[in-house]
């Protein structure tokens, strides 16, 4: 009896074999890693040698919630991620609207390539380019000089600028896809009924594109929440959750505490996704 014939007669077996590798990948490489992270968060590290000691304790979480600095860092991180999302949405919406509803098909294709192009360059190159631009006497200082403006210097503003630049394509693409699905006939109907362009935008386009914007926001928000590289390059002396995790893994050698800190963005994202589910944006991903 050939294998092919056996599989042909048992569709369930066929399906099982087909799905097993991706399920294993999801289960072992992703969920198990997350579970390992959670478990590690309940262990402690020896403060002298840095060896992990596998005894259960809630000490890491007590420290995380009990010491003011982690609350400050968490709030700063959420604030940065939220502002990056707002800046990206504000820039991405007009661009996506133009791409989807105004540009000719040829221009549309060119614009999609232009939006994707920055993704071809390395993250580090782009972050260091921003460091150069934001530095004293850099490009931004030079442009601002005639207007008596100067670079904001390294800090939270610089971090928001850099992250907003880095994640912009992740906002434009979903919004563009969402707006493209919006039937042009609706816009015509709105104008036939006497609505001006502003009213059409406010009452028809924005509500219908909202799920797409929220879908883009999931990307920009979660990517900013976990970032630790941009903030070390342009963030001056500021810390984000990512740098606290990195400092605990890379410098202090306190893996369990790093795992506890790493749970914070996971929890924030779960809350964020639960809120997003209500808008129906998950269906338009």
């Amino acid at each position: 009896m050939s294998v092919a014939a056996a599989l042909h007669r048992r569709p369930r077996l066929r399906l099982g074999l087909l799905l097993a590798p991706p399920m294993l990948w999801l289960g072992v490489a992703y969920l198990a890693a997350l579970a390992a992270l959670l478990v590690t968060a309940f262990w402690t590290a020896n403060s002298f040698t840095g060896e992990v000691e596998r005894t259960w304790s809630l000490e890491n979480f007590r420290e995380l919630f009990g010491i003011g600095v982690y609350k400050t860092v968490t709030l700063r991180t959420i604030g940065i991620a939220a502002l990056v999302t707002v800046v990206d949405a504000a820039i991405a919406f007009p661009i996506a609207l133009y791409m989807a509803k105004v540009a000719s098909p040829r221009a549309q294709r060119l614009l999609v390539v232009a939006v994707l192009m920055p993704l071809w360059a390395s993250y580090l190159v782009k972050a260091y380019a921003w460091r150069g631009m934001l530095a004293e006497g850099g490009l931004i200082d030079w442009i601002g000089k005639p207007f008596h403006a100067s670079s904001p210097g390294f800090g939270v503003t610089a971090t928001i600028l850099t992250l907003a630049y880095l994640w912009l394509p992740y906002m434009i693409l979903p919004v563009y896809a969402g707006l493209e699905r919006l039937p042009t006939s609706l816009l015509e109907a709105s104008s036939d009924l006497g609505a001006g362009p502003a009213t059409t935008l406010r009452r028809v386009v924005v509500p219908m594109a909202m799920p797409a914007v929220v879908a883009g926001a999931i990307f920009t928000f979660s990517l900013s929440l976990g970032d630790y590289i941009a903030v070390t390059i342009v963030g001056g002396a500021n810390q984000m959750l990512g740098t606290v995790v990195y400092a605990n893994v890379g410098a202090a050698g306190n893996l369990p505490f790093a795992a506890a800190v790493a749970m914070v963005p996971v929890v924030i994202m779960l809350l964020f996704l639960a809120a997003v589910r209500r808008t129906g944006a998950l269906e338009s991903l």
């Binding site: 402690t44 590290a45 020896n46 000691e53 304790s57 000490e59 420290e63």
Partner: peptide
């Protein structure tokens, strides 16, 4: 970091 176990050891 103040962890009782770690501090003890």
């Amino acid at each position: 970091m103040r962890r009782i176990g770690a501090v003890l050891s």
